[in-house]
Simulated scan of single mutants.
Amino acid sequence: MTGPAVVLVGPPGSGKTTVGALLAERLGLGLRDTDADVAAVAGKPIPEIFLEDGEPHFRVLEAEAVRRAVAEHDGVLALGGGAVLTPATRALLTGLPVVFLDVALAEAVRRVGLDVPRPLLTINPRQRWRALMDERRPWYTEVARAVVQTAERTPDEVATAVLDALEHHPA
């Protein structure tokens, strides 16, 4: 086992799960989403974890989910938007084929919508998203082997750009 074939990082609304599913299909591999792993382990949706247990508890669960996924999964791996905040997670990603899906604020808001439960975006979603990106962009960039802009691209076009980026930036 050499680890995941592709690891996708980026903010909420960047298309990690959607593009991840397309990549998995194209590569004939499985897709694993660490947010889904966290919800399964906790036995409740992520917004409930934030509300009932707090963000610090969620981050502990998330770091463990990433650790397990990197060790066990050889397909496409989509990380939660804040996974890169944890130094141990960033260290785990060193040397892996990580791609940062970069998305503009307006497009992220359109994709995420305001009716989808995103625990960190509940109050003033546009301002909060911008603040999250200001905080996280250096971490996304640090762990990424390649950055793919998603603006004005369909999920299929983004998946193609991810594969092209990894081909041009091999380990």
Rank of each mutant, 00 (worst) to 15 (best):
D74R: 14
V6L: 03
T94H: 13
G54Y: 06
L120S: 11
L96C: 00
D74Q: 10
G75Q: 08
L114A: 12
W139T: 02
V112R: 01
V6W: 03
Q127R: 14
R90Q: 12
L121V: 10
D37C: 13
P125W: 03
P125R: 00
H73F: 14
A146R: 01
D156C: 06
L79Y: 08
R126V: 15
M133A: 02
A40W: 05
A5Y: 01
T2M: 00
D102E: 15
A91W: 01
M1A: 14
G10K: 11
A78Y: 09
E142Q: 14
P56F: 04
A159K: 09
R145L: 13
L31T: 07
L29I: 11
D53S: 15
V99C: 09
L92R: 14
V38F: 08
R136A: 05
Q127C: 02
V109Q: 10
P170C: 08
R67I: 08
T141V: 11
G28E: 00
P87M: 10
P12E: 05
G75L: 12
E48C: 00
E157S: 10
P11T: 15
R130C: 01
L105W: 03
R26T: 00
H73A: 11
D102I: 01
F100N: 10
Y140N: 08
E52T: 04
A146S: 10
V9W: 06
D134E: 13
A161S: 12
A159F: 10
V116F: 12
A71D: 14
T34M: 06
E48V: 12
A63Q: 15
A106T: 13
F100L: 14
E55G: 07
G95T: 07
T154L: 02
G28P: 06
G113P: 02
V98R: 08
P87I: 13
T94M: 03
K16W: 10
R59M: 14
A69R: 08
L61P: 01
A83I: 05
L23I: 04
N124D: 15
T2K: 01
E142A: 14
M133F: 04
D134S: 13
S14E: 04
V99R: 05
A88K: 09
T154E: 04
R136E: 00
G28Y: 06
S14C: 14
P117L: 05
A151K: 05
L96I: 02
L132D: 06
R26C: 04
G95A: 13
V38S: 10
V76N: 07
L51I: 03
P4R: 09
V7F: 13
R126P: 07
E157H: 08
A24G: 02
V112E: 02
P138Y: 01
F58A: 03
T94F: 01
A39R: 10
L163E: 13
H169E: 03
L92N: 09
K44T: 13
A144P: 09
A104I: 11
L8P: 09
T122Y: 00
L114H: 10
E62G: 13
G54S: 09
T34R: 01
R118V: 15
R68P: 11
H57M: 10
T94R: 15
V147Y: 00
P138V: 04
L92W: 12
H73T: 12
T17Q: 09
P97A: 04
T141Y: 00
V116G: 00
T89W: 04
V116E: 10
A88N: 02
G30D: 15
W139Y: 15
F100A: 11
H73G: 14
A171G: 13
P155L: 09
V60E: 15
A165Q: 07
R136V: 10
E25Y: 00
E25A: 15
V143F: 07
A106M: 04
